[in-house]
Computed example of a mutant assay.
Amino acid sequence: MKILCWNTDEAVWQHWLKVVPKGAELVKVMNLEEAQQALSTSNQTFHYCFVFLADVTFSQQVEDVVLLRSQFASLKLLVFPNQASQQAALRMFSVGVNGQCAPYIGQEQLSLVISVIDSGEIWGGKAFIQQLISQSTEQLNEPSLDMSELSEREMDVVRLVASGLSNKQVAHEMAITERTVKAHLTSIYKKTDTGDRLTLALKAKSYLMVH
């Protein structure tokens, strides 16, 4: 596994070197331009991009992460903020960032985070994600959701996801398998041009409130 690490803090960098999964190859960059160049190089394929959000450049880096997500849609983006900001988290998750963790995350916890993201879920802590979904979508300035192409079953999945249920809970409510839920979600993401669970949930919540 190859990981691009945008990190200007030497102590955090040394910690990451110790806790990443065995066999992972880390490539360090210091700024947005270096990150873009590394990600654009055809002979390098990165499975993940870790971004340490430093206090001094926090707000600008949040916007840089949003830019990276728009430029490299398939890249798994994991951010490590050095300060708590629900607004920043909402901003990043709403555009498809895959997760956020503490900079000094433990080895076992990081392995769990990566496995959860690899399975197609978002990492941020269940309670935190539920809180984000429950918030109004007005501050996101996102276009309304087009659900005209969805089947009735897909609409049922959307409603349950928008209420904050996990794949396992959706499967239980609909009496189907988790694999079937994932298949429905893959189809839904494509038809609604959302791309990830949280974006779908936030937009769907807004849509369902007026329909």
Rank of each mutant, 00 (worst) to 15 (best):
M1K: 09
K2P: 00
K2I: 00
I3E: 07
E10T: 12
E10S: 13
E10Y: 12
W13C: 01
Q14T: 14
Q14L: 13
W16C: 07
L17D: 07
L17V: 12
K18F: 10
V20F: 10
G23Q: 10
G23H: 09
L26M: 14
V29A: 06
N31H: 06
E34T: 03
A38D: 02
L39A: 10
N43W: 11
F46D: 07
C49L: 15
C49K: 02
D55E: 15
D55F: 10
T57F: 05
F58G: 03
Q61H: 06
V62E: 03
V66H: 01
L68C: 03
L68T: 02
S74Y: 02
L77K: 10
L78C: 01
V79A: 13
V79D: 02
V79I: 15
Q83R: 15
Q86P: 03
Q86Y: 01
L90R: 12
N98F: 02
G99M: 03
P103A: 07
P103G: 04
I114G: 10
V116S: 08
V116D: 07
S119M: 04
F128K: 07
F128V: 03
Q131C: 02
Q135G: 09
S136L: 03
D146Y: 10
S148G: 12
S151E: 07
R159S: 12
L160E: 11
S163R: 15
S166K: 14
N167Y: 07
H172V: 09
H172D: 12
M174F: 02
I176Q: 04
T177K: 03
E178N: 13
E178K: 09
H184V: 00
S187T: 05
K191F: 04
L198F: 10
L198V: 15
K203L: 11
K203H: 05
H211L: 12
